[in-house]
Design a binder for these strands. Sequence first.
DNA 1: ATTAATTACGTAACTGATTACACAAATATA
DNA 2: TATATTTGTGTAATCAGTTACGTAATTAAT
Lengths: 315, 315
Amino acid sequence: MFYTKIGKLALGSRLRMLSERVTEDAKNIYDLYDVELKPKWFPVFYSLSQNQEKSITAIAEEIGHSHPSVSKIVSEMCKAGITKEKKDKKDGRRNLIELTKKGMLIAHKIEDQYKDVNHAIELALDQTQHNLWKAIEEFEFLLEQKSLFRRVKEEKSKREREKVTIVAYDAKYHKAFKELNEEWIRTYFKIEVADSMALDNPKEYILDNGGHIFIALYNNEPVGACALLKNNTIISDFELAKMAVSPSAQGLGIGLLLANAAIDKARLEGAKEIYLESNTVLVPAIKLYQKLGFQKVSGFSTPYERCNIQMILKL
Amino acid sequence: MFYTKIGKLALGSRLRMLSERVTEDAKNIYDLYDVELKPKWFPVFYSLSQNQEKSITAIAEEIGHSHPSVSKIVSEMCKAGITKEKKDKKDGRRNLIELTKKGMLIAHKIEDQYKDVNHAIELALDQTQHNLWKAIEEFEFLLEQKSLFRRVKEEKSKREREKVTIVAYDAKYHKAFKELNEEWIRTYFKIEVADSMALDNPKEYILDNGGHIFIALYNNEPVGACALLKNNTIISDFELAKMAVSPSAQGLGIGLLLANAAIDKARLEGAKEIYLESNTVLVPAIKLYQKLGFQKVSGFSTPYERCNIQMILKL
DNA sequence: ATTAATTACGTAACTGATTACACAAATATA
DNA sequence: TATATTTGTGTAATCAGTTACGTAATTAAT
């Protein structure tokens, strides 16, 4: 069969087809019991047969349809003499719906059908290993917790993250290192003197002082960078800085990979703590630092105007 | 939740809602992967990405849609530059569809999405006890074998059969006994002398000779009858005759209940075989007799013009 | 007490499917 | 070979839902 081959991408289509098939049979079943009810009326009808007098939106809420849908169904049912409308005296907007005598008669007549259908379907489902009714319930519950979209998105970034490699700095990445950083700095702030020094001469300013630079490659293209500075050992052993991820590669967790590479390196070199400076405007970055265990500190002097938060990670 | 309460009668509605929810997310997923494909195009697209050049109806057949649906989808996809049409040279009616270069590019691009969606859904389904995908497959298989409609119908007659009771003849059933029989006789044949004798004076003609009459009651109304005659012990111990079920109560298996009551009675009285006369035009009756074990015999004389088949059941 | 926001509902337009129908091309039949 | 039937396709109308939008009534806020 086609749909077993095509895969889960067509789950929607498949569900729709099954629903159409079931509804088609439902039509004949109503005829069989001589019940003047369209299958699509049933949720509304059932809702009304429970209690008295409900407003259009209350019904819509309950059965999970849009209110125009209920509005249309109700007007059809009224025309068929199954329900009647009456204005709410206390609230002129509300249109209260209730079953007519005829409707209640149908509610009575439908009981046998209701029993038979339930029984027939249960009998069928008992023959299966995977109970469709329960499967729907479970699946709806899962979607409630996390939408299909989010699940796929996570799957996507998981797969793409695997294509990311973190490598040590090399002269050929100089341009990328500079541009990746300048991009975000310019977006939120302006390039400062300390920036230019580090970005124009990374070898001299960072590496030769005993620091490190990490580059994130995605399909062999540099899409992220970060640096571990050793300029200011008064505060900490290392300073984490120049963290940049290209907007096109954001959401893949590349920042985390870069930071982890830096932390691993610092630990390897016997560092006891890592310091960093940032700005609270960079929400995802701050969140990442917190997740990694960085704690807010204050009182250190900084060459950066944009710095409004300082953090330290104890290793 | 409403749909757990409402019961299986609303299975169709519930499936539709789930399908809508899934399709809604699918739309966003296609966007996420930057694939210019509407979810509804996917079955057609997938079908075309497998082989080359298919006609509209061939695609419709394969994916289980109606051909106008495919026709519309294809024209949308052609407008989007994903497919192209070309007339079949050998058969001027056929409109052969194939992917364009752009379409093939999308087919390539979609592969990652395809993998991620499959993986995400499988991951979700693994958390469930009842796997929705497999449940659909199993349920579709069951419907293939016997439609929902037939299943419900069987359930209905099972329940209704329980409301049927078989009772012994009483004078108050005389009118019903006569009318039920005259109805089917008149429909297919004409009333004969032997009929009138038995139907006008059942006590004298049947019971007083050692025969029996059984009446089927449905909601305390007589809806069926049959007789066990002892007039002609030359052929068999008993003759099964005057089997009648009201058209309004047909399909409930009342004939079977009546015949079984008669056979039980005959057995109880030590009979070795039961004889009957009928006509092959009465297909359901003949089928019933065969099911009960009656075998065709011939050569016996009969007072009935309409008799064209004679049968005997060995007890 | 006005004004603004929210709520209830209906109408209109759209969506993704269907069935019904029309028509031409191909195939079967007399 | 002429005619009838079948097949492939497209168009139109319908169906069961949706979203978008307008309007009136109620409630909240200034």
